[in-house]
Simulated scan of single mutants.
Amino acid sequence: MKALSYEELRALYKLFLYSQDISRSTINTAYVDTFYLWRKESKEMFWNTVNAIDFENEAKGALIKTLSKNSTGNVNSLVNGYLSHLRRFRLFLASNGTAELAVTKQEKNVKSTYTRKKKMDIDVPYPSIEQIEFYLSKWNGLENYHLQEVALNKLFFELCPKNTDVIDILLKASTLNDFYSTNIFSIYPVAKHICSLDIDARLKAGDVTLVGDIQYVTIGETKKNFYSFASKYCSHHNPIDYPIYDSYVDEVLRYFRNHDSFSDFQDSDLKDYVKFKVILIDFRTFYGLDKYNLKQIDQYVWLLGKNYFPKNYGKKKSNGVVSVN
């Protein structure tokens, strides 16, 4: 097995994990965290550690040393989780990979069943530093998202940083509407509404109530709720203070509330931007992810939601207000 590449070994190990009586979320976490020493140190250290005669002490020492260099979390708390993954990997080594053929069919059946599960049955990987690093790396590797963000940064930070000229606002709002497919079919009333609010000082100060002021726009005789768009407009002026609300983010936060009780909130609280930001901060704190800013947390949660939950496009109407997300 030492001759296998990193990806080959992980693929073989994943087959073994499917043969064990463990949850999908544990499989997803083990598939990443078991190989922490390989990623952060070297292939040689990984193999020397898992094959050590005094495994418990040597593995714990190696993990503490590596975690101390690479993590801002509580090392003594984190080390036990990584150690348990290495113990399971040693069981895999003891099996000599014989689970591979027997599990292939089972894995296919599990995957098939998994795709048919309802949202409430989906097992999403537990939030961790490793998971965030994985998804941030994935984000940076998506050329379309990266270049789109570069273009928006140039527009919002260099070409049209202020919000006193309705033409500048119209350019920014139109670009956001197109890039994010926010389905605002008459963008000028939105730009005019934003211009009337005199928002620059509030944006700089990170005034979270501003999103609520921007989101409601009357077009014709209809009051519309552009909540997600409003959060995006503020975020692209001040990304650290204004995380973006999106249906993917909504799904993920509700999922982990239901599974881990990281925060006590009602579903409707996510549609209140002041409460939404507090909930996202609670999420970051609960899972020990304080080394990441809200923009990074937002990117991670968005990609996680995109992977695990379907997107529902369309309009929702409630109490005479048309909502477009």
Rank of each mutant, 00 (worst) to 15 (best):
M1G: 07
L4E: 09
L4C: 08
E7K: 01
L9P: 06
A11Q: 11
L15H: 14
L17P: 08
S19H: 04
I22A: 07
S25N: 11
N28V: 12
A30W: 15
A30V: 12
T34W: 10
T34L: 04
K40R: 12
M45R: 13
W47M: 03
I53H: 08
D54T: 04
F55M: 00
F55Y: 02
E58F: 00
E58W: 00
A59Q: 04
A62D: 06
A62K: 00
L63C: 03
I64W: 02
T66M: 14
K69A: 13
N70E: 10
T72R: 05
V75I: 15
S77D: 15
V79W: 06
H85R: 05
R87P: 09
R88E: 14
F89G: 02
R90N: 02
S95V: 04
T104H: 08
T104M: 13
E107Y: 12
N109A: 14
V110F: 13
K111V: 11
Y114N: 15
R116E: 14
K117T: 14
I122R: 10
I122W: 08
I122T: 07
P125K: 07
P127M: 08
P127L: 10
E130H: 10
I132M: 14
E133I: 11
Y135N: 00
L136P: 07
L136R: 09
G141Q: 12
L142E: 13
L142I: 15
L152F: 00
L152C: 02
P161I: 05
T164L: 06
I169D: 08
I169T: 03
L170Y: 07
A173I: 08
T175D: 05
N177K: 07
F179E: 15
Y180G: 12
N183C: 06
F185L: 13
S186P: 06
V190S: 00
I199V: 11
I199R: 05
L210D: 03
V211G: 07
I214M: 11
Q215E: 15
T218I: 09
G220I: 05
T222V: 15
F226I: 01
A230S: 06
K232N: 06
P239D: 03
D241T: 05
I244M: 13
Y245W: 11
Y245F: 14
D246A: 00
S247T: 10
D250R: 00
R254Y: 01
R257Y: 03
N258C: 00
N258F: 01
H259W: 01
S263W: 03
F265V: 10
D272W: 00
V274Q: 12
K275G: 09
I279M: 04
L280D: 04
R284K: 14
T285C: 04
Y287K: 01
Y287P: 01
L289N: 02
Y300F: 15
Y300R: 02
L303S: 06
L304Q: 03
K306F: 01
K306A: 07
K306M: 09
Y308E: 07
N312I: 03
Y313S: 13
G314Y: 02
G320T: 08
V322W: 03
V322D: 01
N325P: 02
